[in-house]
Amino acid sequence: MRSLKLMIAATVLSLASLAAHAELVVIVNPKNPAANLTAEQVSALFLGTATTFPDGGAATLADQPESASIRGDFYQKATGRSVAQVKATWARLTFTGKGTPPKELKTDADVKAFVASDPKAIGYVDASSIDGSVKAVLKL
């Protein structure tokens, strides 16, 4: 019993330290001229107040699944809002024809593949998933 408690405690601790160290990056297609983006610029795109990159090019947004913890981390760090608040914002935009919510993909690999294949795309993944197929423009 005692050893079970210890194990649980150890697991919780290691998960907590993992979460604390998890770094996420915002990625765009390598053809995107932006070298980096500010958290404000990323926030404006993912809250629907901006529809284009700073150079004026249209943006296509990729999201992670609602069940993934990275989604909550991303919105908290980039926009200061919870996943639920962001959903309410997109509901308002969707039903008034002012925007289309981000496309929800299943995994980091899916987001990366989507961004790698579309010059207009922007998404976010765990920093450890990054490779040459995409360009990191912001660390959160």
Binding site: A88, A91, F95, T96, G97
Partner: peptide, 17 residues
């Protein structure tokens, strides 16, 4: 269309928002 007469006029039926 729904006209944006007031700040939330066009989305006033979307209770979730």
């Amino acid at each position: 269309l729904r006209a944006p007469t007031f700040m939330y006029s066009d989305s006033v039926f979307v209770g979730y928002a």
